[in-house]
């Protein structure tokens, strides 16, 4: 839910044309000030060489940050859905695996998770691939996949790009949080829905797919949106793997030019431009979902409204 300006609620109840004093109080000053700073920065980037230099060096990191976040988040959603369903499973095996994953991963700082995945889990996977490859090569009746076998057995850790490891780490870490979002969303759907579906003869999975999950998604979307924005910020942690994202390029620029102000103002501004846009999108989505709009229509309308508001340079409260 968006936190509305408390001043609004007092004044809006009066009918008639709003006096100027009220209009002044209602304006989102924080956003206007932020916009002003942004304009200042754009001016600086255009006219000051240090800023332009910093921007040219750092801006390519935007692509890495965005790519890493979006791919990692998509994987985290898949992991989250599977683990979330495991968390509500009555099967002791799936329940315990899912709970172990969620409890452990949520108990470790994200930066440690990324390092752990990059330097412990991924190497383990590579070792496992090596063993599997050797097994294939040694087994005569598996000769038809010999090519795959030799590729697997000679896989080397250095072949795995740091970006791939970083994305794996982010996905692994966020999957646990998304699992809980899915679990809570599914459990928020009243029991009667499952009972009605089962009474009609649907299996558990049919009921989930056609009755429960479609309803749960409406509940789940806003938290997921917020988590995507959180991941945009946490993606800065992949800089510890020397991946050239916004933060890493910021660090490199600072050590290259010693211009801390220009560097970090630019990095901050670039992160803010992503996260604030994202937050606006989530708020619009929330509002549209509340008014009962269909989900796909809501998402389409969010993009439409964002585009409109950006072109008119308005800030939606």
């Amino acid at each position: 839910m968006s936190v509305s300006n408390p001043i609004n609620s007092k004044k809006r109840k009066e009918p008639g044309i709003m006096p100027i004093s009220t209009r002044l109080k209602i304006l989102p000053w924080w956003a206007l000030f932020l916009l002003f700073l942004g304009v200042l920065l754009i001016y600086a980037i255009i006219n000051r060489e240090n800023y332009r230099d910093a921007f040219d060096f750092i801006a390519p990191g935007l692509q890495v940050t965005l790519t890493a976040s979006v791919i990692a988040f998509t994987i985290a959603l898949v992991v989250g859905l599977i683990m979330g369903m495991g968390r509500i499973s009555s099967n002791p095996i799936t329940y315990n695996i899912a709970t172990f994953y969620v409890e452990v991963v949520r108990g470790i700082p994200m930066i440690v998770i990324i390092i752990y995945v990059a330097f412990v889990l991924v190497p383990l996977v590579v070792q496992g691939a090596n063993s599997l490859g050797n097994l294939i090569l040694e087994t005569s009746w598996l000769a038809f996949i010999e090519g795959l076998g030799s590729k697997l057995s000679t896989m080397d850790i250095t072949q795995i790009d740091p970006l791939v490891r970083a994305i794996s780490g982010l996905a692994f870490g966020y999957g646990a949080y998304e699992a809980e979002v899915f679990r809570a969303g599914i459990q928020s759907i009243e029991r009667g829905q499952m009972e009605a579906a089962r009474s009609l003869g649907m299996s558990y999975f049919q009921a989930m797919r056609h009755v429960i999950l479609p309803q749960a998604i409406r509940v789940i979307l806003p938290p997921l949106g917020n988590d995507l924005i959180a991941m945009l910020k946490d993606s800065s942690l992949i800089s510890v793997l020397a991946v050239r994202d916004l933060t890493q390029l910021g660090k490199l620029n600072r050590s290259r030019t010693f211009r801390t102000f220009e560097t970090w103002n630019t990095v901050t501004y670039l992160y803010l431009s992503m996260t604030l846009l994202g937050s606006m999108g989530v708020k619009i989505l929330e509002r549209r979902l509340q008014s009962g709009e269909a989900i796909t229509t809501s998402i389409n309308n969010v993009f439409r409204q964002l585009r409109q508001s950006l072109s008119r340079k308005q800030v939606i409260d």
């Binding site: 009605a196 579906a197 009474s199």
Partner: peptide, 20 residues
């Protein structure tokens, strides 16, 4: 269960219609 529930229809106090 599949055969059972196909043969037995149930109507609930709170209707439990699928709202979506």
């Amino acid at each position: 269960l599949d055969s059972l529930r196909a043969e037995v229809g149930m109507v609930f106090q709170l209707f439990n219609l699928f709202p979506h």
